[in-house]
């Protein structure tokens, strides 16, 4: 009987090691597998340097190309019409991307099918005016230093929900920033912290 008891004791310790191994292996698999199976990647139509452009527009900053409309709504990504304020039928520089843009879009009168990193679903009403104008939050707080990037990162989207990966956040655990996580609970957390209403109709339509 004693040997049996002894064996049991000895074995339980090693078994718990197996538990830990199983735990580590499976969670590692989970961490590795999740983004692989969930996210698909798409390339932007062509490369674009925000850094270069931000340098050209001067003090106006982001709003030079991403302005508010007169009715207070946010214009988002500019159309080719806006780009044409500077880019005519001739290229301004010698970058191959600009040539692609001028040849394939400006001259053909086509819009660029940009993939939008921060696109929210249709049931969400996000007021840029309330955040950027009323609360004075910097663009970078949510969008990160997008303006300093020289290339566009690969657009990743969720195969199931079709949302951009930026909505959940780059980190699978919902940590890390910027760009900030843009899920409903992150909105609600910030609203609560700042004593702003978080009723349904504040952000939904």
């Amino acid at each position: 009987m004693t040997t049996h008891e002894h064996g049991q004791e000895k074995r339980s310790k090693a078994d718990w090691l197996l538990f830990v191994v199983g735990f580590i292996l499976a969670s590692a698999l989970g961490f590795w597998l999740t983004p692989t199976i969930l996210y698909a990647q798409k390339a932007q139509p062509f490369q674009f340097s925000h850094k270069l452009h931000l340098g050209e527009v001067g003090d106006e900053g982001c709003k030079a190309c991403h302005p508010f409309r007169k009715d207070g709504s946010f214009a988002g990504i500019p159309g080719v019409e806006k780009c044409k304020e500077c880019h005519s039928d001739d290229t301004l520089g010698d970058k191959p991307e600009e040539k692609v843009f001028v040849e394939q879009y400006v001259k053909k009168g086509k819009e660029v099918p940009w993939l939008v990193y921060a696109k929210q679903p249709s049931c969400v009403f996000f007021s840029h005016a309330a955040h950027a104008e009323n609360a004075g939050i910097e663009c970078t707080q949510c969008h990160g230093d997008h303006g300093k990037t020289e290339t566009l990162r690969t657009y990743e989207y969720n195969r199931l929900s079709t949302y951009s990966r930026d909505i959940w956040g780059k980190s699978l655990m919902g940590l890390g920033s910027p760009p900030n996580r843009m899920k409903m609970d992150s909105c609600a957390d910030c609203h609560r912290e700042n004593g702003v209403r978080d009723a349904c109709f504040v952000c939904h339509k």
């Binding site: 197996l18 191994v21 499976a26 989970g30 597998l33 999740t34």
Partner: peptide, 24 residues
């Protein structure tokens, strides 16, 4: 059997600790 069960339970708990299931 017991060792396997511990390993399996560990794996299941580990999988749950990973973002896979809540995310899915």
């Amino acid at each position: 059997r017991r060792a396997f069960v511990k390993f399996a339970v560990g794996a299941v708990v580990g999988l749950h600790a990973s973002p896979l299931i809540p995310k899915l």
